[in-house]
Design a protein around this nucleic acid. Sequence first.
DNA 1: GAGTTAAATGTCAATGCTTACATATAGGTA
DNA 2: TACCTATATGTAAGCATTGACATTTAACTC
Lengths: 195, 195
Amino acid sequence: MSLKYALLGFLSTEPASGFDLAREFGESVGWFWYASHSQIYPELRRLEAEGLVTSTASPGNPGKQKRIYHLTEQGEAALQAWLEEPTDYAPIRDVERVKLVFLDGAPVEAIRRHLEDHRKHHEDLLAVYTQQLRELHRGVFPRLVKRLATRPRSSHKMITGLKVLAMQGNIARARTEIHWAEDALTWLEGMEDQT
Amino acid sequence: MSLKYALLGFLSTEPASGFDLAREFGESVGWFWYASHSQIYPELRRLEAEGLVTSTASPGNPGKQKRIYHLTEQGEAALQAWLEEPTDYAPIRDVERVKLVFLDGAPVEAIRRHLEDHRKHHEDLLAVYTQQLRELHRGVFPRLVKRLATRPRSSHKMITGLKVLAMQGNIARARTEIHWAEDALTWLEGMEDQT
DNA sequence: GAGTTAAATGTCAATGCTTACATATAGGTA
DNA sequence: TACCTATATGTAAGCATTGACATTTAACTC
């Protein structure tokens, strides 16, 4: 159900085509929801059938014509209702942890590789998030700029603030993971010395 | 693919029935992989067809008879191969973040509720993880005890250490989330004062 | 004796998601 | 001219997951 509302959310900032959305949801390193175009196109059609969005096809030959989706009032209402509902938290499924706890029979080298990959992965994420936070603060983060442009000035602080909060949360997470991986690697070195 | 290996992992500690596994994977608040019994039973059958596990049905009438699954050598090998492979990280799909960044039009009360739920959720997790870490350190965590019992003494430090690490990582995560939610709530109070 | 709960295993329809295949245009490059 | 890349939109098979339905036995409670 969440892809549906993630799409409505993005469309609540400005109308967009499936392609635009696929680009944003695909580069989602640094954003909050990943989806591929093969999920997005049919979902948009469904939203249209439900009356939550309308679409206008730009003129042009196939392969070049865009179909732009606009949020309807019904869509806006559905989004707001969903937003205010309490979240039900996704069940935990953590491949890395599963691997870690069962790697106890593997060579130390293999464990180290996993921990280093973990650190690297979150360092890469941290770099992206840090960059995006900087852009938010400078007021050059594209989706923020667009959203501010269509909302009353009185709400600007809240709009910016929530995005900053979300990004700071991601940064805090990444830092925690990096920190943990480093502690784990230190511990692992100690283990090797003993054998 | 991960459920498959999570099952093999659990079976690498000791043979178990679908019911046992469903219990452990269902109570997975505090563990690393959630799955329901309706996923587990068919998956075990598939693993048996692949030759990665064998099963023996305990005698008894239906409704009381257990089918116990044992890891085969092939299963052990498949598990080890998977464990040492690099992890491919799951794409990011974060409902809470999606909600947060689009809640900018909602009443402050609604935002506060979300942040408080977030804090509560991770406080609950933290309590479970903290308890489990204590049990790991005291050597009374059931699955740890069982695993140690079937492995050479020389590997005990590694077995315990990795589980402790994993749990410490979960604790660090929970603390980060709680901390973040508290900062966010403080910021939100400041926002209210301005209006 | 009737009713409830826990143990134990299963099926099935529907939804969500991934991966691969498919097609057409426009613009740039070798 | 031939090739590649980006733009743009789609389909479809298959796997993963959810939620509901279904059944039997044993033990406990009222």
